Amino acid sequence: MGAGLMPVCRLPPYWAEACTHLIERDRVLCKLIPQTTHAGLQSHGDPFVTLVRSVIGQQISVAAAQAVWQRFEKLLPQFEPAALLRLRVDEMRAAGLSARKVEYLVDLALHFDSGHLRPDEWPGMDDEAIVKQLVAIRGIGRWTAEMFLIFHLLRPNVLPLDDVGLIRGISQSYFSGEPVSRSDAREVAAPWAPYCSVATWYIWRSLDPLPVAY
């Protein structure tokens, strides 16, 4: 994949049904969904690119992550694990990556390059089995694995309770800005199933109208 390739908007086949479900069952989403002009998840269609972008985006703002990504992808005309492994550490650091994230990306590339990860098997696996496989990689925690489920595999029912944006959006839209616990968030999200990923996407849009891509 060329470094300049833009993400392709892929509207999952369940999207319209999910929106109808959420509009009928949630007082906030029944207003938010019709007001949102962008609709659909954006995916590069490449598991390695998706995971690299997720690692880059850890613990920094969306704007900062995008800036680092744009500098980093220029280093790789062919965005492949073997090409990343040929980069020098100082090149990656100059793109804005921390030393720890450089280590994480190298380990991720090694897992792909060695064949320890089998992306061809993921479509047939359930969400938790994929999360378990991914979190075994250094630097990939549950949040990163769940972003992968949402943005690459387009799984419909992921509720990323470790996502700061989701918790903040629930706080603002359902609790007038008051602090929200994980149990509060689960209670709010109960009517969203089996389309928690779609609901989460719209809650993100309530904070930032521009979709995030991984």
Rank of each mutant, 00 (worst) to 15 (best):
A3N: 15
G4M: 12
M6F: 14
P13Y: 15
P13V: 06
Y14S: 11
H21Y: 05
L22T: 07
I23W: 00
D26W: 03
K31R: 15
L32N: 03
L32W: 02
H38I: 05
Q42A: 11
D46Q: 12
D46Y: 01
P47R: 10
P47G: 12
F48M: 13
V55P: 05
I60Y: 04
I60S: 04
V62I: 14
V68Y: 02
W69F: 10
Q70V: 13
R71E: 08
Q78I: 12
E80T: 12
R88N: 15
E91Q: 15
A94M: 04
R100Q: 13
E103H: 03
E103C: 13
V106D: 06
L108F: 03
L110S: 12
S114G: 03
S114R: 09
L117P: 08
R118G: 04
D120M: 13
W122L: 02
D126Y: 10
D126S: 07
A129H: 10
K132Y: 06
K132V: 10
V135D: 05
I137M: 06
R138N: 08
R142T: 11
M147N: 10
H152A: 02
L153V: 02
P160D: 00
P160K: 01
L161R: 01
I167A: 10
I170M: 03
S171R: 00
Y174Q: 00
Y174F: 04
F175R: 07
E178M: 03
P179I: 01
V180K: 00
V180M: 02
S181E: 04
R186P: 12
A189D: 05
Y202N: 04
S206K: 08
L210R: 14
A213W: 15
Y214C: 01
